[in-house]
Amino acid sequence: MARHTPSRLYPPVWVMLTLSTLATLTLGVGLAIFHYQQQSKVILSTGETLFTHISQQIEQDLLRLYQPPIQALNLLALSDLTATTSLQQRLLHLPKLAQVLEDNPQLNSLYHGWPNGDYLMLRPLRNAPLRTRFDAPPQAMWMVWNIQRSGGTAEAVYVFLDPQLQVLAQRITINDGYDPRQRLWYTNAINSGAQIITTPYIFFSTSEFGTTLARPAAGGGVFGADLTLGQLSHTLANLQITEHSQLLLYDPEGTVIAYHDVGRILNVAQGTALRLKRFNELGSTLLAGLAEDGFRQERTARLQMEGQRWTLSQSRIDLSGLPETYLAILVPEQELLAEAYRIRRHSVWITLIASLVFLPAAWIGSIRLLQQRR
């Protein structure tokens, strides 16, 4: 006679079902968390690679911005323009100056200052507001500002030219005492004996911001060029990683030379001199807090600021011959890890749906197995 195994040796059905349900849910949630953690690591690592790529992109843009006008000034320094003594002689040299300005649209103007205080500047009138500012004829595409000194007096003349550099109008303008020999770009270039680049500032005549490149001329005096920096801000805007990312370029003193929101760079408060802001003046408590650690930081870090975590990269753009410049990139981790959050959320839902689909089959199978064993 066969032995009959008492049914009390087997766990109750509800216990088996509960254990299998918990095991399935635990496995699913565990896999979701594991995938989230791995995805987060990959995204954060990719973020650091992306920061490096942005830094390299900015370096390339700075080289493209500065190198061509630097090379052009090196050639102009050998020009015999320095030997001219009258406006008519100087007008003959305009084609090569205009060519430099056409080849370098980032240049606001090109000029030369003589040791005796004479001055010649060529400026392209690229838009209607500029023509209006200088009361130029509608067809004018170029403007010459010439200052000539003789017998202790200085005569200043505006000459307006068409696209072919033919004179449209000429008028004597008010001499406001401008003397190139008293300007920093002139004195710094003479004292250094080499090419110099000034710190960024606001150009008085056009209210654009940029920097001045200058170098001594072989025949005496100094050649200079005003280089606008507005395009760098558009580059940062195009490189913005997420909606609320912060990207800015600044000098060692914290003066911002490029920001993804270019309209916030200029200090236009009534009663104050027009100037570039420091990055703790941009109206961002995030950047103001960052400035407390110093402007010359180089680091990659994760910070808790403004109630959330940020991934931060601060690095120096170190290019030979160019001004010392720093790049700061800040990205909210919530936005940077949005894809990881999405994968985690989808993994949990997939686990729940799979449980709803497969657990009933597991329950039925468990019940039948227990019935067979009994």
Rank of each mutant, 00 (worst) to 15 (best):
M1K: 09
T132Y: 11
L312S: 06
Y158F: 09
G28I: 06
L44N: 15
S150W: 06
A362Q: 15
Q297G: 10
I43E: 08
V42L: 11
T212W: 05
L249I: 04
I364S: 08
D261I: 14
D261W: 10
Q246E: 13
I317T: 08
L9E: 15
L352K: 06
G210A: 01
F203A: 03
V167K: 07
I257D: 04
Q39N: 15
L130S: 09
D103V: 05
Y119P: 06
R3Y: 12
Y158C: 02
G151S: 04
P69I: 04
T132L: 14
M16Q: 11
L229H: 00
V100D: 02
V256Y: 01
Y111V: 07
R275H: 08
I147L: 09
Q270W: 09
I43M: 06
A217H: 00
Y111T: 10
S245C: 04
A301L: 09
D293F: 08
S233W: 05
R264Q: 13
V29S: 06
L336N: 03
G230W: 07
A128Y: 10
A98S: 06
Q67T: 11
R296H: 08
S347L: 01
T325N: 06
G271Y: 03
E208N: 11
S315H: 15
L239Q: 12
L161M: 05
R133H: 08
S45G: 10
P95F: 03
S233A: 08
L248M: 06
V13L: 15
P124C: 05
L213G: 05
N116V: 06
Q182A: 12
T84K: 12
T235N: 12
F358N: 07
L50V: 15
G230K: 11
R149T: 15
I147R: 13
L19C: 07
P68M: 02
Y119E: 04
A83T: 13
D103L: 09
G117C: 07
A269L: 13
D226Y: 03
R131E: 03
L290D: 10
A189D: 00
N267M: 08
V268F: 09
T24N: 12
N267P: 02
L359F: 09
G219I: 02
P129D: 03
